[in-house]
Design a protein around this nucleic acid. Structure first.
Lengths: 186, 186
DNA sequence: GTCTATATTGTGATAGAC
DNA sequence: GTCTATCACAATATAGAC
C-alpha cells in the first residue's frame, strides 16, 4: 500500500472504524458486525458499503490504525533512558488498553499489502535499536514481549503468578551483554 | 475436572474428536462445524448431540486432548541432556505439526474447569525444572517460546528473518546464569 | 444411536428508489 | 449517502420416528 493512512480516509471512514473499534473492545470480534457498526452510527448496514467495499476492507483499516498507533507509542518509549525496559512497559500497556485489537493484530496472518508503507518497520525500529542493532536478539525480545502479553490476555498464567517478576526476569536476561555469535549446543 | 481423560471418552467420542481435529488442521477453526464433523464420520449432524451436549463441550475435549499430547512431548524433551534447548525444539515442533490446534489452545482464555486434572502442571513442570526451579524465569522462557511460535504461525516475521538464530539468541540469554531476583533474598 | 424435518437465528451483501 | 426490502446462505440445536 502506498503512502500514509490518514490522507486516504474520509472523515466518515474514521467514524466507522472508531465505531468498529468500540464494538470490538466491548464485545470481542464476534460483536463487530456490519449491522452493529451501522446502528452505533445511527444508520443502516447497507450504507456502510458506500464507504468500504466489504467487511474485510473495514477490518484491514481497523488493524492498520492499530499498528500506526502502536508504532507511535513504541517510538516514544524508545527515546527513554532504559529503552528495552521502557519498550516492554509500553508494549504491555498498549495491549492491555486494547486487548481485542491487539489480538486481532497478532493472532492472524499479517496482510502486508493492506498495511501502510513503513508502519511495520517503524514499530520494529525502537526494539532493534534497544537490542544494539542485533536483529536476532531483537526478534527474541519481541517474541518474549508478545508471549508474555498474549498469555496474560488469554489468562494462561496461573492466578498466583507474579507477572511483573517474570517480565523483569526476561528483560534482565535479554539485555545482558551477549557474544556476537553464540552457539548453543544442539 | 476429575481424573484423566481417556477413561471418560467412549470410542465414538474419540472418533468425533479426531474428525474435528482433522477438519481444524485442514481448514482452520471455521471449518469445524457440526455438519462437517458428522459428514466426515458418515452420519448426520444431529447424531453428534447423542455424544456431546453441545459444540462447546466438543471443542473443550479437543483442546484437552491437545494439552495431554503436548505434555507428553515436553516430558520426553525434559529428559534430554540440554533440557531448555530440547524443550524449545519440542515446543516449536509440536506447534508446527498442529498449528491450528495450537492456536486454539493458546489464543483463547483457558477454561481450567474443563481440563483434566494435572495436565497443565505436567506440561509446565519440565520447563520449570530446566530453569533451575525459578518460576519467574520459567514463565519468561515459556513466553519466549510461545511468542516465537505464535509470531511464526501468524506470519509476522519478515520473510528473510533467520528464526533459528532468533531462537538461539533467546535460549542463550534465558539459560545464562542469572543473579537472584532483587526482591527475594533466599 | 441414527435418521428426517425443521426451528431459530444471524450473517454479509445487493438492487433500486430517493 | 442513505434508505427499504430482500436475497442467499450457513450455523447450532431440537422434536420425534425408527
Amino acid at each position: 500500500m502506498a503512502g500514509g493512512v490518514a490522507e486516504l480516509l474520509t472523515g466518515r471512514m474514521t467514524e466507522i472504524i472508531d465505531a468498529a473499534r468500540d464494538l470490538l473492545e466491548a464485545g470481542g470480534p464476534e460483536a463487530v458486525t456490519m449491522r452493529a457498526i451501522a446502528e452505533r452510527l445511527g444508520i443502516k448496514a447497507p450504507s456502510l458499503y458506500k464507504h468500504f467495499p466489504d467487511k474485510e476492507a473495514l477490518e484491514a483499516a481497523l488493524v492498520a490504525a492499530g499498528y500506526v498507533e502502536q508504532a507511535e507509542a513504541f517510538a516514544a518509549a524508545g527515546r527513554s533512558r532504559n529503552p528495552l525496559a521502557a519498550l516492554a512497559r509500553a508494549y504491555r500497556r498498549w495491549a492491555m488498553e486494547h486487548p481485542h485489537l491487539y489480538m486481532l493484530m497478532t493472532n492472524r496472518p499479517l496482510e502486508r499489502d493492506r498495511l501502510p508503507d513503513g508502519v511495520e518497520a517503524a514499530a520494529a525500529a525502537p526494539i532493534v535499536k534497544a537490542c544494539g542493532g542485533n536483529p536476532d536478539r531483537a526478534r527474541a525480545a519481541w517474541a518474549f514481549a508478545h508471549g508474555m502479553t498474549s498469555l496474560e490476555l488469554a489468562n494462561r498464567f496461573p492466578p498466583d503468578a507474579d507477572l511483573d517478576a517474570a517480565w523483569r526476569s526476561g528483560i534482565d536476561a535479554l539485555q545482558a551483554p551477549h557474544a556476537t555469535q553464540p552457539r548453543s549446543t544442539t
